[in-house]
Design a protein around this nucleic acid. Structure first.
Lengths: 165, 165
DNA sequence: GCAAGATAGTTTGGTGTCAAATTATCTTGC
DNA sequence: GCAAGATAATTTGACACCAAACTATCTTGC
């Protein structure tokens, strides 16, 4: 595992040893801790997925598709919280790799729907396994605070996510 | 304010009305809620800063510099948790806009240090005001759970941020 | 001293994201 | 029926980010 180690060790990013020490000014800021927690945990997921040669960014897309059988890009955009223009390129990549299939909507020539292919489903399942492990780790860390954590995070998302400025 | 409204309203992104409804598969996943909470709250900050024509991404950088008088790019990288290569372009932009000044290190020709200019300090202060408002909002939402929230987020960051894979 | 290795910063290439503008198609009001 | 507006997706342009490769400089061991 020394070899594995070095992959991470010689990167130029932060999170090395001696260490950052939360800048005093940020210590009490929820937003700061939110960002750091989210970034580090996502990166852990990305690393785990990357080792298995999987694209972590596809997980949300594939999982949403795994639940609905078929969706238009716009629906997927709403569900995943990404701009439609972002979906255009993601779907192009997924399609190119044979993970999804597109089908024109006969009732509306502007629109089409996408669904998982067999390969897409397999990829989703492999990513899901990694996500499950990652999430078990998070559950363990949160321990008895999990319910409170999810509740507060939900309140934050609800407050900022629904108001139109 | 109808005009303000439309800026946001006609974007193609999600977080519109009827609305996403958390996909069942994600409902219980801490990672998912973490991501959504962080993204929505950051976007709220970015919108607020954007209205005042400020670059939200510069806040962390300028604030770190506001606390230390002078730092090298590498130190800033560690403190802000960004890759050194990311800093290169950020610092170029900040410098170009006269918000920071660079000074070569006479003892080491490879290195230099950056410090805030007067304009940089002003920008930091204006961004800070917005951050304070934003954070008051978060504090309000978190309410009595704030301490638990920060604690759990800190544990998450500590766990994923310090292990070398 | 000087070669080998470490370190500071930059460059290059790739990803993911948003927003604005664009194209094609559909719907509505008259 | 047809013009005006709405809607679905795409294109284009801009950023922020990371990682790997690179350049220049410093440090160390001998």
């Amino acid at each position: 595992m020394a070899a594995e180690s070095s992959i991470r060790r010689d990167t130029q990013a932060a999170s090395e040893e001696g260490e950052a020490l939360v800048p005093a000014m940020f210590q009490n800021l929820i937003g700061y801790h939110l960002r750091v927690a989210q970034e580090t945990s996502f990166q852990a997921f990305a690393r785990a997925a990357g080792k298995a040669d999987l694209k972590p960014g596809w997980y949300a897309l594939l999982t949403a598709l795994a639940e609905r059988e078929s969706m238009t890009p716009s629906e997927l955009s709403r569900i995943c919280g990404r701009d439609r223009s972002t979906l255009t390129s993601s779907l192009k990549a997924l399609s190119h790799r044979g993970l999804i299939a597109r089908r024109r909507n006969p009732d509306d020539q502007r629109s089409y729907s996408v669904k998982l292919t067999e390969d897409g489903r397999k990829m989703q399942e492999r990513l899901h396994e990694i996500a499950v492990v990652q999430n078990a780790r998070l559950d363990e860390i949160a321990g008895e605070d999990k319910a409170v954590l999810i509740d507060v995070l939900g309140r934050i998302a609800a407050t900022f996510g629904t108001q139109d400025f």
